[in-house]
Design a binder for these strands. Structure first.
Length: 167
DNA sequence: TGAATGATGTTT
DNA sequence: AACATCATTCAT
């Protein structure tokens, strides 16, 4: 479960879809080659967020998972909205709950995650990752929206979930 | 229900 | 020039 605390209130959801990105062997990873200014948080200590801006209008949030220097991260692609649904609606300008967090750009907008949270602690005042209801059956597929590393089966989602980015 | 497309700014 | 996307539009 991913919790976002802000002055506007709390918004939270259960993580139901992710993608893995690793350095050196994964051509789709921002950290494929080396440390750059943008991907620096991926190379840092685990337990922090890597937030980046893409397509001129969307933020994406990753959870840095491996020890310093290893640059692996998990992209959060979809949440099952649990808390602060009305706040999410306001931020998204959308009514249907199904559309609030069913994509990496959508959930960042719904939770108010932007550049200010790049490098933020995942056990901090603004972001919090907690155990949620367990995911019992996980499906793995190839990743979405990439042009390299297309055969690596590193997208994972909860079987039968209504909240993932593709039905 | 699905394919095509434009929006928009940073990175390489 | 590409990009870890989304909402809208137009076609089936």
């Amino acid at each position: 479960m991913l919790v976002r605390e802000s002055p506007e209130g709390r918004a939270a959801g259960r993580i139901v879809e992710t993608e893995g990105y690793v350095p050196l062997i994964d051509p789709a990873s921002h950290a494929y080659r080396r440390r750059t200014n943008r991907n620096a948080p991926m190379w840092g200590p685990p337990g922090r967020a890597y937030v980046y801006f893409t397509y001129g209008m969307h933020y994406m949030v990753n959870l840095v998972t491996e020890p310093e220097g290893q640059a692996a991260a998990v992209l959060v692609r979809a949440l099952e909205p649990l808390d602060g649904v009305d706040l999410m609606r306001r931020r998204r300008g959308v009514d249907k709950v199904r559309l609030l967090c069913s994509g990496p750009g959508k959930l960042c907008q719904a939770l108010g995650i932007g550049a200010a949270l790049n490098g933020a602690a995942l056990q901090g005042p603004d972001l919090l990752v907690l155990p949620g209801d367990p995911v019992h059956e996980i499906v793995s597929t190839t990743r979405i929206g990439i042009t390299r590393g297309v055969d690596l089966p590193w997208r994972f989602y909860e079987a039968g979930s209504n909240w993932v980015s593709r039905r």
